[in-house]
Amino acid sequence: MGDSLRLGLVGAGQISGAYLKTLPRLTNVTLTTVADLDGNRAAAVAAQMPDVRAVTPEELYAADDVDLVLNLTIPRAHAEVAHAAIAAGKHVYGEKPLAATTEEARAILTAAAEAGVAVGCAPDTVLGTGVQTARASLDAGDIGSAVAATAFMVTPGHERWHPAPEFYYQPGGGPLLDMGPYYLTALVTLLGPVRRVVGMSATPRATRVIGSGPRAGTRFPVQVATHVTGVLEHAGGALSTLMMSFDVWDAQLPRIEVYGTGGSLSVPDPNGFDGTVRIFEAGRSEWADVPENGGYRGAARGYGLADMARAIAEGTPHRADGELAYHVLDVIESLLASADAGAAVEVGSTCARPAPVASGARPEQA
């Protein structure tokens, strides 16, 4: 394997396909094992990947040829899998959110620190050319000092396309926990950590109906807020307005925009890795495209894993790390707590703003 970090993948569900497409082109990580509670799903993945074997989760944690566990289970299982990996002395990188609650997430980070292993967490979309080009423009002062930002993610709901969508509407789900990490991680990357929030939420529909697959037409209960809006006060003073919804059929809204003393910046979809950044500068009459100036070119899901593997080898910090994921989860919980209390909530955590990604960099080398 050389210097390659050996991976064991736990959770061969829908999101695993995106990672499996990326892993073969990352030179510092090598997939060796795959496990799932459904052994047939693990076997189906292993059959498509050379030199990869299907095992049980317990066998994967104990395997000598696994250095890092890639945790792609559903959100409510994130903490259980992370703890099992850490107890076996493995590094762990998981899908977002880090855990279902900040209490669970802090326990993961504490256990990892005691075991001397690293924790990473999606999203790594912010490492692509879209958000990183926007960051480079902000850092260069192209729109002056940041004053405010907006972030909108609206959809009618995932039950339209997902064959088993119930977990999106159970504790640990909802638009803020499902899609919020993409937008909040981007806002923290662009504007720094959040110190205070004000939130409001609603659950307009008590039930939802599965729209596709063998269970189409099945009605199920909604147990979480499906429309959340709020204002974030960043430590640097900028105010971000956020709206995350599973209750909007269509809207003509920006994904993310940042407003400064000397102009405005339009940031591409943070659920993707690339896209065109646009700028409106004071004194100009129209928007203009910003040339690509940062980020991993051609990035896809798993680039954060390669960035983490490089950092482990070098003994340096990685970008999609556990403290960033914890802070984002803390902001999410604080927004929901604010909505329940009807008052502003101080965010108890903070984090370092991740290091920028230089234009043309590779995650195995940057």
Rank of each mutant, 00 (worst) to 15 (best):
A112N: 14
A107T: 00
E233N: 06
M49K: 03
A47L: 12
L31Q: 14
Y326P: 08
A105G: 02
P193Q: 04
D139C: 06
R278T: 05
P50V: 00
V66L: 01
A82P: 13
V81G: 11
T73Y: 09
M153E: 15
E233C: 06
G275S: 13
A88Y: 14
T276A: 14
S349F: 14
A99N: 05
L305F: 02
E257T: 05
V34T: 00
A54D: 04
A164S: 15
L191P: 07
S4Q: 06
A299F: 11
A352Q: 09
D321W: 03
K21Y: 11
Q365S: 14
A149D: 05
L60A: 06
G315P: 03
S201V: 08
D321L: 05
D274C: 07
G260A: 10
V328M: 00
T218L: 01
A341S: 14
V29L: 15
A136K: 01
Q14H: 10
Y19S: 15
A300I: 01
L177H: 07
D142Q: 14
L7G: 10
V66I: 06
Y93V: 05
A54H: 09
V209K: 14
L184D: 01
T150W: 07
E364Y: 15
V228D: 14
L187G: 08
S264V: 14
A344L: 11
K21S: 13
G263M: 10
V328E: 00
T56V: 02
Q14Y: 14
G211T: 02
T226Q: 03
A361M: 10
S264R: 08
A325C: 08
V194G: 04
A339M: 03
D64R: 05
H327P: 02
E95R: 06
P291I: 12
S137K: 02
Y303T: 13
E346N: 13
Y296D: 09
C351F: 10
L138C: 08
S137T: 15
V258S: 15
T350H: 01
G2F: 08
M244H: 06
L190I: 11
L336Y: 12
G237S: 09
S4T: 07
